Simulated assay, not measured.
Amino acid sequence: MKPWKLLTILLMAAVLTACATGPRRVSEPAASIQQLSVGADGAWALELRLQNYSSIPMRFESVRLELSVGGESAGVLEIAPALTVGPESADIVEVALQPSAQGRLQAADALAAGRRLTYRIEGTLRAAPDDRGSARDYKVRHESALSPVPGLPGVMR
């Protein structure tokens, strides 16, 4: 192989390696409710989506969110998932909740009427870059709505 071809190949490899190791970006994570299932006993099983917008994996250590549905306080979602979410990815954690009477009534009314249920979560996510130990609290506030799932009684997405 001619020396200039070998030099060109090595130079291209160096450029590609430099491009692969871009700047590390740590962004605020987010949370939302992906699914709410109402049990026969009135308890709720929630699928909470934890979103990592960072360019590196983030370790979610704790979650504390106040949940309101239909404008009424429903309870507090509090878990310690010890979950690592890859860069610019999301994962789901399950959270059990005994909702307040007002929250239970709002969900039952929405399910019976086949209408959407608005919700708001507000609180903190404690997370850290996976390769470092320093966790910090991130403020979270998210508003959205869940709709009944046809064919799945008691389930809203």
Score class of each variant (00 low, 15 high):
G114K: 00
T84M: 11
R116N: 10
P81H: 07
A107Y: 04
E122T: 12
G103H: 01
L97C: 11
D109G: 03
P81I: 07
G114I: 10
R104G: 11
R115N: 12
G123R: 12
S100V: 04
R120A: 14
G123M: 14
A90Y: 12
S89T: 03
A110S: 14
L117V: 08
P81F: 10
L111F: 03
I92S: 04
S100K: 00
I79V: 13
L83W: 08
G86T: 08
I92H: 00
S89W: 11
L117F: 09
E122Y: 07
S89I: 01
A96I: 00
I121E: 09
G114H: 04
P81C: 08
A96L: 08
R115Y: 02
S100F: 03
T84Q: 11
S100H: 02
L97A: 03
G114A: 03
R104A: 15
P99G: 04
R120C: 13
G123L: 12
S89H: 10
A108E: 15
G114C: 03
Q102S: 15
G123W: 10
Y119R: 04
L117P: 02
A110F: 12
R104Q: 15
S100L: 05
Q106A: 15
V93D: 01
A80I: 02
T124W: 08
Q98H: 05
T124D: 14
A108L: 11
S89Q: 14
V93W: 01
R115I: 12
R104F: 13
G103I: 08
I92F: 09
G103P: 09
D109H: 11
G103A: 06
A113V: 09
V85K: 02
R120G: 02
L105T: 10
V95C: 07
G86N: 10
S100C: 05
L83Q: 10
E88F: 02
A112M: 10
L117H: 01
A108Y: 07
S89F: 07
R116S: 15
V93M: 04
L117N: 01
L105A: 15
P81W: 10
L83A: 09
P87Y: 03
L105D: 14
A96D: 09
E122W: 08
S89A: 15
A113M: 13
Q102H: 04
R116G: 15
E88V: 09
A110H: 08
T124L: 14
A80W: 11
A80L: 13
L97T: 00
P81A: 08
I92K: 04
A112V: 08
A90L: 09
G103E: 07
S89N: 12
E88C: 05
D91N: 09
A108S: 13
I79C: 09
R116Y: 09
G86K: 07
T84F: 06
E122N: 13
I121A: 05
L97V: 03
D109V: 14
A90G: 12
E122C: 07
I121G: 05
L117Y: 05
G86A: 14
D109R: 13
T124H: 06
V85I: 14
S100D: 06
